[in-house]
Lab assay of single mutants.
Amino acid sequence: SQTQRTQDENEARRIAEEWKRRGYDVEVRNRNGHWEVTWD
């Protein structure tokens, strides 16, 4: 799996939607004030 971090929730949601469209299983988490998008 791969993880991308961002400070911006909207960006995190956009990234998550992009990977979901490509057929990946995606998880979005808030950790210590930043957002992590993990896909595999």
Score class of each variant (00 low, 15 high):
Glu11Ile: 07
Arg29Ala: 10
Trp35Met: 01
Asp8Ser: 11
Arg31Tyr: 12
Glu11Tyr: 07
Asp40Trp: 15
Gly33Gln: 03
Val26Trp: 01
Ile15Gln: 03
Thr38Glu: 06
Lys20Pro: 00
Glu9Ile: 07
His34Phe: 15
Lys20His: 08
Thr38Met: 09
Val26Gln: 00
Arg31His: 12
Glu18Gly: 06
Trp35Tyr: 05
Glu9Phe: 09
Arg21Lys: 13
Arg22Glu: 05
Arg21Gly: 09
Ala16Ser: 05
Trp39Gln: 03
Gly33Asn: 06
Gln7Ile: 10
Arg22Val: 04
Gln2Phe: 15
Arg29Asn: 10
Ala16His: 02
Asn32Val: 04
Gln7Phe: 11
Val26Asn: 01
Glu36Gln: 05
Glu36Arg: 02
Arg29Pro: 00
Arg5Asn: 07
Ala16Arg: 03
Gln2Ala: 09
Gln2Val: 11
Arg21His: 09
Glu9Gly: 04
Arg22His: 06
Thr6Asn: 04
Glu17Phe: 08
Ser1Gln: 12
Trp39Thr: 06
Glu11Lys: 04
Gly23Ile: 01
Ala12Gln: 02
Gln2Asn: 13
Ala12Arg: 02
Gln4Gly: 05
Trp39Tyr: 08
Asn32Leu: 07
Arg29Ser: 10
Glu18Phe: 15
Trp39Lys: 05
Gln4Ser: 08
Val37Gln: 00
Glu11Asn: 05
Asp25Glu: 12
Ala16Gln: 05
His34Gly: 09
Gly23Leu: 02
Tyr24Asn: 02
Trp35Pro: 00
Asp40Met: 15
Asn32Tyr: 08
Thr6Gln: 04
Arg13Trp: 13
Arg13Tyr: 12
Ala12Val: 03
Thr3Gln: 07
Asp25Met: 13
Lys20Trp: 10
Glu36Cys: 11
Lys20Gln: 10
Arg21Thr: 09
Asn30Ser: 09
Gln2Pro: 07
Val28Ala: 02
Thr6Asp: 03
Val37Lys: 01
Lys20Ala: 11
Arg13Val: 06
Glu27Pro: 01
Asn32Pro: 03
Asp8Trp: 06
Trp19Val: 04
Val37Ala: 02
Trp35Leu: 01
Ala16Leu: 04
Thr6Phe: 15
Ser1Ile: 13
Ala12Ser: 03
Ser1Val: 12
Gly33Lys: 03
Asp25Ser: 13
His34Ala: 12
Arg5Trp: 14
Arg21Met: 10
Ile15Ala: 03
Asn30Val: 12
Trp19Asp: 00
Val26Cys: 06
Arg5Ser: 09
Trp39Ala: 06
Ile15Met: 08
Glu11Gln: 07
Thr38Val: 13
Gln4Val: 15
His34Glu: 12
Arg14Gly: 04
Arg22Asp: 03
Arg5Asp: 05
Arg21Cys: 14
Glu27Asn: 09
Gln4His: 15
Asn30Gly: 05
Arg29His: 13
Trp35Ile: 02
Glu9Val: 06
Trp35Ser: 00
Arg14Pro: 00
Arg31Trp: 11
Gly23His: 03
His34Val: 15
Tyr24Gln: 02
Arg5Gln: 10
Trp39Glu: 01
Ala12Lys: 01
Trp39Met: 08
Ser1Met: 13
Arg31Asp: 09
Gly23Asp: 01
Asn30Phe: 15
Arg22Ser: 04
Thr3Leu: 10
Gln2Lys: 12
Asn10Ser: 13
Tyr24Met: 05
Glu17Met: 08
Lys20Thr: 09
Asp25Thr: 14
Thr38Trp: 11
Ala12Asn: 00
Glu17Ile: 06
Asn10Tyr: 12
Ala12Glu: 01
Trp35Val: 01
Asn10His: 11
Thr6Ala: 14
Arg31Val: 15
Thr38Phe: 11
Gln4Pro: 04
Ser1Pro: 14
Ala16Glu: 06
Asn10Phe: 12
Arg5Thr: 12
Glu18Ile: 11
Lys20Arg: 14
Thr38Asp: 04
Asp40Phe: 15
Glu18Gln: 09
Gly33Met: 03
Val26Ser: 04
Gln7Gly: 09
Lys20Phe: 10
Asp25Leu: 13
Ser1Lys: 14
His34Thr: 14
Ala16Thr: 03
Gln7His: 12
Asn10Val: 11
Tyr24Thr: 01
Gly23Ser: 02
Glu27Val: 14
Ile15Tyr: 04
Trp39Asn: 03
Asp40Gly: 15
Asn30Ile: 13
Arg13Asn: 08
Asn10Ala: 14
Asn30Trp: 15
Tyr24Ser: 02
Glu11Thr: 09
Glu11His: 07
His34Tyr: 15
Glu9Tyr: 12
Ala12Leu: 03
His34Arg: 08
Arg13Leu: 10
Arg29Thr: 13
Glu17Val: 05
Thr6Trp: 08
Glu27Leu: 11
Arg22Gly: 03
Glu18Asp: 09
Trp35Asn: 00
Tyr24Ala: 04
Asn32Ile: 04
Ser1Asn: 10
Lys20Leu: 12
Glu36Asn: 03
Glu36Leu: 08
Val26Thr: 06
Thr38Lys: 09
Gln4Tyr: 15
Glu11Arg: 05
Gly33Ser: 06
Arg31Glu: 10
Ser1Tyr: 13
Glu17His: 06
Val37Thr: 02
Glu17Cys: 12
Asn10Glu: 14
Val26Arg: 01
Val28Met: 05
Val26Gly: 01
Glu27Tyr: 11
Ala16Val: 04
Glu27Trp: 10
Asn32Glu: 09
Arg14Thr: 08
Arg13Glu: 05
Arg14Ser: 08
Gly23Met: 02
Ile15Gly: 00
Asp40Ala: 15
Arg29Trp: 08
Ile15Pro: 00
Arg5His: 10
Ala16Met: 06
Glu11Met: 08
Arg31Ile: 15
Ser1His: 12
Trp35Thr: 01
Ala16Phe: 05
Tyr24Asp: 01
Arg13Pro: 00
Ala12Tyr: 02
